[in-house]
Write a protein that binds this DNA or RNA. Sequence first.
DNA 1: AATGAATGAGCATTCATTCAT
DNA 2: TATGAATGAATGCTCATTCAT
Lengths: 205, 205, 205, 205
Amino acid sequence: MRKAAKAVTEPRSGAGDKRSTILRAAIKVFAGKGYFSSKVSDIAREAGIADGTVYLYFKSKDEILRSIFDRAMEDFISEGKRELKDISSPPDRLRRIAGLHLEKLGSDRDLAVVFQVELRGSTKFMREFSAAGFADYLDIIRAAIEDGQKAGIFRDDIKPITAAKIFYGALDEMVTNWILSDQSYQLSPMADDVMNIFLGGVFRQ
Amino acid sequence: MRKAAKAVTEPRSGAGDKRSTILRAAIKVFAGKGYFSSKVSDIAREAGIADGTVYLYFKSKDEILRSIFDRAMEDFISEGKRELKDISSPPDRLRRIAGLHLEKLGSDRDLAVVFQVELRGSTKFMREFSAAGFADYLDIIRAAIEDGQKAGIFRDDIKPITAAKIFYGALDEMVTNWILSDQSYQLSPMADDVMNIFLGGVFRQ
Amino acid sequence: MRKAAKAVTEPRSGAGDKRSTILRAAIKVFAGKGYFSSKVSDIAREAGIADGTVYLYFKSKDEILRSIFDRAMEDFISEGKRELKDISSPPDRLRRIAGLHLEKLGSDRDLAVVFQVELRGSTKFMREFSAAGFADYLDIIRAAIEDGQKAGIFRDDIKPITAAKIFYGALDEMVTNWILSDQSYQLSPMADDVMNIFLGGVFRQ
Amino acid sequence: MRKAAKAVTEPRSGAGDKRSTILRAAIKVFAGKGYFSSKVSDIAREAGIADGTVYLYFKSKDEILRSIFDRAMEDFISEGKRELKDISSPPDRLRRIAGLHLEKLGSDRDLAVVFQVELRGSTKFMREFSAAGFADYLDIIRAAIEDGQKAGIFRDDIKPITAAKIFYGALDEMVTNWILSDQSYQLSPMADDVMNIFLGGVFRQ
DNA sequence: AATGAATGAGCATTCATTCAT
DNA sequence: TATGAATGAATGCTCATTCAT
């Protein structure tokens, strides 16, 4: 059933695939040489298609970058919602978020590079993106912290939004550092270290 | 007398100044439209000079960006050393670092934008810069944390380098968020919030 | 049938032609204003194409000049070999060479200008070209003279290579003078005058 | 007397000297990298003066090249006239011309390079120059040949102007070849070879 | 006369995008 | 759908020339 429906939606399996193929190719190329240094023809070559074909699926080079973000964010958000659905404990929710964040980016270095480096290469992109998915993401974190405060588990002398930024900033820096290193270590296990410090602080009790 | 003295002190007040003028202009222009979208002629116009004059002070557009980073980092490091000289308590050192970090960038939005956004717009720059000043910066933080552990003030079940990354990532995210916001709030006071959470954790004791 | 055959033979008649079109345009433009004063856009306009199209066929402006020389030299050498194949008498060989030299350049003033003037406008070009085709050309002349000496027709108290240079220099000067004149006379007939003096000398016997 | 007069003409011996200094510097620089690739600042540096100073003595870079030609041609013509004054035999006059031509250029490689290569780099220059000194030079040669014919020494079935061009072309080629070679041989002795062939021809009598 | 900082016109080359096939 | 040849706007950088000192 599912398959049949799918077949109807994408009569030529090549069509949907090709968009993805281009997106994958773009991620690889952007990660390798940066957005501005990457040529549309590089992406086309990587995708094994003609330059002009790219424009049958994307309006512009700019839109390709935007689509990379949109799709990844969409995937990530939906996967996150599914995973978090049954976790009610605020600390556990934060742990799961940290885990997913680092697993996702740690398992796809090219995507991670585009996220950490290229998507920040312009205030324009950052503003657009922040308006879009990023704010939602930060809000999910903030909500978990607020819930923790209401439940009396988290200190209530801290501002949830600030704590959320710290939490996100910590994870983000883990990814950036991992990318700039030679990646000789696994990224996802760092989630535990982050959680440990974030929840317990640096001070000896 | 004043004039004479001035003339002697700054025989060609234009020379040294002009380099700075160009740098200031570049920071403003880069902050406004991004490095790649900024034209050298934009910088020249902003600086009130001819296009060609830019090249009497900088070898290339690329070198201007590099110089912005170098000069700012130099300033920051030397100011930091001076300020930290007499602070021996590890938590206080971290507090001062956080304060300086947010004060510096919070007092110069254009510079902050260039630092947070443009300097990350390419793996190339990030690698070069990380190899240069950034690693040193992170190491100063790491050392303070290690000292705190030796002094028995900080927990010793945490890795200093990881804690340092979290600390830096937290500050960094404060700056980025502030930039992308409408800057209706002051950045530097956030240092206290960050320190509070970083040191004490989110958990209620 | 003809059409079909043609379509098969020249599926994209534009491809090969366009390179030639650009080359012809470049010869005309270079002849008119000199290599350095000619803009790539001048060539493009003359060829009836867009500026960028030039770069689909040539890597650089420099390469266009090189190609003009390569192609002309190739044509000339192959035509020369064909023509000289059946001429064994040394004086006749020299006569044919002189004839071809002046006919070729005398029938295409623009090409002649580029050869006589532009290709000498830099030691760089001259060295490269002299290393390439020119040395071969001079050697063919030298060989004919040597043959004449062996056959006892030519004086053997003269150095063949020197005589060859004189021969070439004489022809070359005919061309240069013709170019700088208003070309009110035919160039190729001068070959006889050159041969007459070169072979018989100026002295009355 | 001569000296006094000279002192009056050039009150500051530096003035006249500096023009020469610039000219010598320009010859060296042009010979080294070609006219178009040479920058005015290269010439100034070579001459040990400031860029702007060049323009106190020459109106433009273009004029420098022209002056090199003018001065050298002037020198050459006047020296030639002096040398030829007492030589009435046409063959001897030609011998002396050939000797002077190759001695002059053979003793100053840089000047030779500028003459053989740079001065031909544009039809513009060639036209101007040919209109100026070159025509005179060729005419002196032509006159000598005509005299030889009148005196019954030279064949009268040859056109004097054509013979003159051949004579000049032969010498010219000697110089060009010498420049492009590694100059391991002396140029001026080649005058004899040229005369021998030009006068006697290649044919064995 | 001399300086050299400043000027700004000029140009080769690139590359995202289009469109005829 | 797919192609890829063609387009042409866009720009970093150079360098001859000027001019205030």
